Amino acid sequence: KRYRAVYDYSAADEDEVSFQDGDTIVNVQQIDDGWMYGTVERTGDTGMLPANYVEAI
Rank of each mutant, 00 (worst) to 15 (best):
Y37G: 02
A5G: 05
V28K: 03
I31S: 07
Q30K: 12
E41Q: 10
D15G: 15
T43Q: 01
P50Y: 05
Y3H: 03
V26K: 08
E14W: 11
S18G: 06
A5W: 02
Y9Q: 02
G38T: 00
D15T: 15
D13C: 15
Y7M: 15
W35F: 06
D45L: 13
Y53E: 03
Y7I: 09
V40C: 04
D15C: 15
D33H: 11
Y53P: 01
V54T: 04
R2F: 08
Y7V: 09
I31E: 06
D8T: 13
T39P: 01
D15R: 15
K1F: 10
V28D: 01
S18I: 02
L49K: 00
Q30I: 14
G22E: 03
V40I: 08
Q30L: 13
G34Y: 15
D33Y: 09
E55H: 09
G34M: 15
T43W: 02
G44T: 04
R4L: 07
A51I: 11
V6W: 06
T43C: 04
V54P: 00
L49W: 04
R4A: 05
T46R: 12
E55I: 14
Y3N: 00
T43M: 03
V17F: 05
M48A: 07
T46G: 04
I25E: 00
Y7L: 13
S18N: 07
W35D: 02
A56G: 08
I57M: 11
D21Q: 15
V54L: 11
D13R: 15
F19G: 00
I25M: 06
Y53F: 11
N27K: 08
A5R: 00
G44W: 06
W35P: 03
D33R: 09
R4G: 03
P50A: 05
A12T: 12
D8R: 09
M48S: 06
P50V: 04
L49T: 01
V54S: 02
V26A: 08
N52Y: 10
E41P: 02
D23Y: 03
V28Y: 04
Y53M: 12
F19L: 06
R4T: 07
D45I: 11
I57P: 04
F19Y: 00
R2M: 10
R42K: 07
E16N: 05
E16I: 05
A11H: 04
Y7W: 12
T43G: 03
E41Y: 07
Q29I: 15
P50N: 07
K1P: 10
T43N: 05
E14N: 11
A56R: 10
E41M: 10
L49N: 00
N27G: 09
Y37A: 05
L49M: 09
G44H: 05
T39S: 05
A5Q: 01
G34W: 14
F19E: 01
G34H: 15
R42T: 05
A11Y: 03
D15E: 11
M48N: 08
D8A: 14
G44D: 05
Y9D: 00
T24S: 09
D23K: 03
G38I: 03
A11I: 03
G47L: 02
M36V: 10
R42P: 04
V40Q: 03
N27R: 09
R42F: 04
Q30T: 11
I25Q: 00
V40P: 01
G38E: 03
V6E: 03
D15H: 14
G38R: 00
D8V: 07
V54N: 01
Q20M: 13
I25G: 01
N27I: 13
D23A: 02
A12P: 05
T39W: 04
V6F: 08
V54F: 07
K1Y: 09
T24F: 14
T39A: 03
A12N: 13
A5H: 00
A11F: 03
R2N: 08
G34P: 03
S18P: 03
V28G: 07
M36F: 13
D21R: 15
V6A: 06
A12L: 13
T46A: 09
D23F: 03
M48L: 14
V17Q: 00
Y7R: 15
V26I: 14
D45M: 13
D45N: 10
W35E: 01
